[in-house]
């Protein structure tokens, strides 16, 4: 049984994470990760077939910060922007010891285009490793596994 205070800390991190994405605060997104961290967004098909290529493979904080640069400085002005709404439901949480928790959640991300049409962007599961220290909780690893193997548009933002 995981302590309610621990669960509250974990959920607060997830909310901080999805709010950052939904307001396109990419620095805030990067700020959800620990000093040693990884963010992977990968199709479930690849995971099930043990194929390692991901859609986004930011396996260090340097790469996570580089993704913020891609969005803000490299791709700016070219892509069709879209508004996301992330819906996340925690379905499992286990202690990994030393203040580390292994958390699994379902997610669904809706998106709205500039024309005002809303559709589902991706559906899947998060497999997270979250550390709870003295300060705010942080992701040591966040893996977004997409059931939506063929995405209905190119993904600009992390999920």
């Amino acid at each position: 049984m995981i302590d309610a205070g621990v669960l509250a800390g974990i959920d607060a991190l997830q909310l901080r994470y999805l709010r950052a994405l939904d307001v396109r605060d990419m620095a805030g997104w990067a700020g959800c990760f620990a000093e040693t961290a990884s963010y992977i967004c990968i199709a479930r098909e690849n995971v099930e077939q043990e194929l390692p290529v991901a859609i986004m493979m930011d396996d260090s904080l340097a790469r996570i910060r580089d993704r913020v640069t891609y969005i803000a400085k490299v791709w700016a002005g070219t892509f069709e922007d879209y508004q996301t709404r992330h819906f996340v439901q925690r379905i499992d949480c286990m202690s990994g010891g030393d203040g580390l928790y292994v958390v699994e959640s379902n997610f669904m991300v809706a998106y709205t285009t500039a024309r005002g049409r809303s559709e589902i962007l991706v559906v899947g599961t998060y497999e997270d490793q979250i550390e709870l220290g003295r300060g705010d909780a942080k992701f040591r690893a966040k893996k977004a596994i997409l059931d939506t193997v063929t995405t209905p548009r190119y993904l600009v933002y992390p999920v």
Partner: peptide, 17 residues
């Protein structure tokens, strides 16, 4: 391969746009 040249790639995302 994961980050450079695909639909969300560093130097290629704009092609899809």
């Amino acid at each position: 391969a994961s980050n450079l040249i695909g639909p969300s790639g560093f130097i290629s995302l704009e092609d899809g746009a």
